[in-house]
Design a protein around this nucleic acid. Structure first.
Length: 288
DNA sequence: CGGTACGCCTGAAGGC
DNA sequence: TGCCTTCAGGCGTACC
């Protein structure tokens, strides 16, 4: 599932293709992928709101959201679970022909930018300006990589609740999803149900350090491709091969060889090592 | 405030 | 082989 590393790698892989390019045609096959306060009930949108006409000047990211910035328009893109954004030559398609919701064509370029999303949990949110984008992102949690580590620790300390639940909460820290929550909790040897308030500052600092190390490493490997994730060129990531717990329930812990536990935490499938990540309190044990 | 459940949606995977 | 069920999950929303 596209989380921060996947979106960041996608952003970097899109940069050379789209910066300075001007959209000359936008084809919207499914209007219901258009979202937000500037899209009316019929999802009728001016082409300029979908970047038509002005050269693209920047690609930015906050958490799991990517923004394509042009002079008079900003388009926020959320990939949801299965979203893909690929630059491809129409004569040599990379993506399957189904679920192609929006296609952008450029001046002086043969390749097109395609937004494809089979499950449609993703969507596009047009905004009129950079100021609106700044406001939108200011209302979110701090970005897990762009903010300073001390800000992340402070954000976690400001809330109560189980630690995994907070890591997944995009209004606390933006960018962490199920994969990197489980991976960073294992790395920091913290049980996912641990009440955040029970963690001393140095353990939270450890967790934040582990999280950022894992996010950076994942970006370097092109992200995790569990099923649908592709970068702008259609390439899959390589980080999934290094997952320590995610998707490995029942398999031996890479540290102590005991079988990894599986359960539901914060409504998500969660994998942890009962030996390496001890249960915080004597009672509240999740099933193994 | 925090927790939980649900709906959205498709395709992979498992059972029979 | 083929049909049916279950599951995965980000996120908004409703509700306790």
């Amino acid at each position: 599932m596209p989380e921060l590393p996947e979106v960041e790698h996608l952003r970097r892989s899109l940069l050379p293709g789209v910066i300075g390019s001007t959209v000359v045609a936008v084809e919207v096959a499914r209007r219901d992928v258009l979202r937000g306060p500037y899209v009316d009930a019929r999802a009728t949108v001016r082409p300029s709101a979908l970047l038509h006409g002005c050269p693209i000047t920047a690609l930015e990211r906050h958490g799991k959201e990517l923004a394509i910035v042009a002079e008079k328009a900003v388009l926020c893109i959320h990939l949801g679970m299965s979203g893909q954004l690929v630059l491809e030559d129409p004569s040599r398609p990379i993506l399957p022909p189904t679920h192609r919701h929006v296609t952008w064509s450029f001046r002086d370029r043969l390749d097109r930018l395609v937004f494809r999303d089979p499950r449609r949990f993703g969507g596009l949110t047009p905004l009129p300006s950079r100021e609106q984008l700044a406001g939108r992102w200011a209302d979110r949690g701090v970005d897990a990589l762009l903010a300073r580590p001390a800000e992340l620790v402070a954000a976690l300390r400001a809330r109560s609740g189980g630690i995994k639940s907070l890591l997944l909460n995009q209004s606390v820290i933006a960018g962490v999803g199920n994969i990197y929550a489980d991976e960073s909790l294992f790395s920091a040897r913290i049980h996912p149900l641990t009440p955040t308030r029970a963690l001393p500052p140095d353990r939270l600092a450890n967790l934040v350090r582990a999280l950022r190390t894992i996010l950076r490493r994942a970006i370097g490997l092109g992200g995790s491709s569990v099923r649908d994730y592709r970068d702008a060129c259609g390439a899959t990531g390589g980080f999934q091969a290094t997952h320590t717990v995610y998707g490995r329930g029942g398999a031996p812990c890479r540290a102590c060889r005991s079988p990894l536990a599986t359960g539901t935490v914060a409504g998500r499938t969660t994998v942890w090592c009962a030996a390496c990540q001890p249960i915080p309190r004597a009672d509240s044990a999740a099933d193994s």
